[in-house]
């Protein structure tokens, strides 16, 4: 069955974690790179529905907790941008033969570090991620919206853009291989569950994998 389980990967001399879901005898294996910072929290329900839907389609997925995020014991202020890119690579190596990388939002700034086919949901430039953080700072008066990120990480992130070929899905508008009409959960302070969006994404990913 497809109960979620934690799978370890080693990066930067430490053990980090991925949340794996899907049958042991799977038809395909995907690595999932989450959005960054607050958008990661807001897409938690979407990612859970996505992993569940993929599992039902026989596709195993591994949701990467980057150093300094999620289950990681590392302090975010010690993390550099290059550490996140290496972590994405190391996670892919730990999973073994992967059929593709699914990246959302700021996660699309890391997927080109992995040699595998790429599928992206609403990729965003690093400069826009940083601008959101700075705006939240302006509103809340808490430095970097409460994220104790190193200045060097923020500087490197500012210059990062999604690179390489990918199948790109966006919501509502923009340049994409396919547009889906839906409310972006990463823009809601308290996102509501959208099973139809998760199902549409699962269908697209399964089609992309040729399943």
């Amino acid at each position: 069955m497809s109960a979620p389980r934690f799978v370890a990967y080693e990066t930067g001399g430490a053990r980090e974690w991925m949340l794996a879901r899907g049958p042991a005898e799977n038809v395909a294996r995907l690595l999932i790179l989450q959005p960054l910072f607050e958008e990661m929290n807001r897409t938690r329900a979407l990612l859970a529905d996505l992993q569940r839907g993929l599992a039902d389609a026989g596709i195993a997925s591994f949701l990467v907790d980057l150093p300094g995020t999620g289950e990681s014991e590392r302090a975010l202020e010690t993390v550099r941008f290059i550490d996140w890119r290496r972590a994405a690579q190391d996670a892919a190596v730990a999973v073994g033969a992967i059929d593709g990388v699914v990246a959302l939002r700021g996660g699309c700034l890391l997927d080109d570090a992995i040699a595998a086919p790429r599928w992206r949901l609403s990729p965003v430039a690093g400069a826009a991620v940083v601008r959101d953080l700075e705006r939240e700072t302006g509103e809340t008066r808490v430095p970097l919206a409460g994220y104790a990120a190193d200045a060097a990480l923020i500087a490197a992130l500012s210059g990062a853009v999604p690179l390489g070929a990918a199948r790109t899905i966006r919501l509502n508008a923009g340049e994409a291989d396919r547009l889906i009409g839906a409310s972006p959960p990463w823009r809601r302070s308290e996102p509501v569950r959208d099973a139809a969006l998760a199902a549409a994404l699962v269908d697209d990913i399964a089609g992309w994998l040729g399943r």
Binding site: V124, D132, R135, E136, E139, N172, G174, P184, R188, S189
Partner: peptide, 18 residues
């Protein structure tokens, strides 16, 4: 429309309208 939603509103307008 609290201050946090203003951040989301501006970001989404930028993205959707380029």
């Amino acid at each position: 429309l609290d201050s946090m939603s203003v951040v989301n509103l501006l970001g989404e307008l930028e993205e959707r309208l380029g």
